[in-house]
């Protein structure tokens, strides 16, 4: 296991996440994809810290912790919005949210 293994895995996760955000229409699945994106970055932080020049500094894991907490906050707000949207629109399909657009 070298640094490159982790970087490749994280790049794959980034690709999966981006693909999900760009192509899926279900809001909940899009939120999943965003979580995958954040975790791709977190994996990078931990890998760079572990294989980096000074593992004593702990900067990588520290940032990963912040990223986890922030991602949770975003998802909490996102799920609350999904509930509100479902109550009004009766759908979680992004394509059906189209009241705002170019006239």
């Amino acid at each position: 296991m070298t640094l490159n293994h982790y970087l490749v895995l994280s790049a794959i996760l980034l690709g999966i996440g981006l693909l999900g955000v760009l192509t899926r229409r279900n809001i909940i699945v899009v939120l999943f994809s965003i979580e995958i994106l954040f975790n791709a970055a977190n994996l990078n932080f931990i890998a760079f810290w572990r294989f980096g020049p000074n593992p004593e500094a702990l900067m990588g894991p520290m940032f990963a912790l912040f990223a986890i907490a922030v991602a949770a906050a975003e998802v909490a707000v996102g799920l609350a919005l999904v509930i509100a949207v479902y109550r009004h629109f009766k759908t979680v399909d992004l394509e059906k949210l189209d009241t705002l657009r170019e006239p």
């Binding site: 994280s10 980034l14 996440g17 981006l18 955000v21 809001i27 899009v30 939120l31 965003i34 994106l37 954040f38 791709a40 970055a41 977190n42 990078n44 932080f45 760079f48 940032f63 990223a67 922030v70 975003e74 707000v77 996102g78 919005l81 999904v82 949207v85 992004l94 949210l97 189209d98 009241t99 705002l100």
Partner: peptide, 22 residues
């Protein structure tokens, strides 16, 4: 609807930002 659009695009942008920082 504005909230959902902002959330999804904003969160994706944040994720890209974090990846860049990494």
């Amino acid at each position: 609807e504005a909230g959902v659009k902002y959330l999804i695009l904003g969160a994706a942008a944040s994720a890209v930002l974090v990846y860049g920082i990494a």
